[in-house]
Amino acid sequence: MCDCKDEKGKALDAVLDEYGRDAGSLIGILQKTQDIYGYLPSDVIYYVAAQTGTTPAKVMGVATFYTQFRLEPVGKYLIMLCKGTACHVNGSDRIEAAITNELGIQNGETTKDGLFTLKNVACLGCCSLSPVMMINEETFGSLTPDKAVEILNEFKKRKEEIA
C-alpha cells in the first residue's frame, strides 16, 4: 500500500483532512486526488479506502462508475471529442476518423510519445458550435476533419517550443 509520504502524498492528506476523511465525500476526494496524480493509481485507491473507513471495493466502484475518473495516466493533452446529438448530426464521426487517423490512436488510448489522449465524451454543451472538441481547458468549435488535424499540429508545435 502507498505510504503516501512524498509531496503528492502530503497534498492527498490535506485533501482528506479538508473532507474530514468522510466516505460521504468520496467523489470530491477522488476528484482532487486525480488533480494531484493525474489519474487514480491503485495503491492510492487502497490508501483512500483505509483513510475514509471504507473498503477498496467501494472506492473502486465509485472510481469506475463515473467517466471523469481515470485508472491510467493520460497524455499531456487530453482531447475530449464531443459525441452529443448536435455534434453527431453535424459529423463528429468524421472528426473522430481524422483524429484517429492522424494520431494513430483509438478512443481511450494515448499516443506513444505521451502527448495526446483521445476520449469521446457525451455532450460538452457547445451544441451551436458543433462539432466540438476540448483540448485540456480550450474549446474548439465548428470543426472539419482538416481543421481538427491543423489544431493537433499546433499542439505538437507548442510542445516543440517548450522543448
Binding site: 466516505a23 460521504g24 467523489i27 477522488l30 476528484q31 462508475f65 463515473y66 467517466t67 471523469q68 457525451a122
Partner: peptide, 21 residues
Amino acid sequence: MAGAGAFVCGEETALIESLEG
C-alpha cells in the same frame, strides 16, 4: 458539488446517491 460524469445522475434518486458519495 461537482458531478463526475454519469448521465443517470440526472435521475433524482441517483443524484442523491451520488451526493452521498
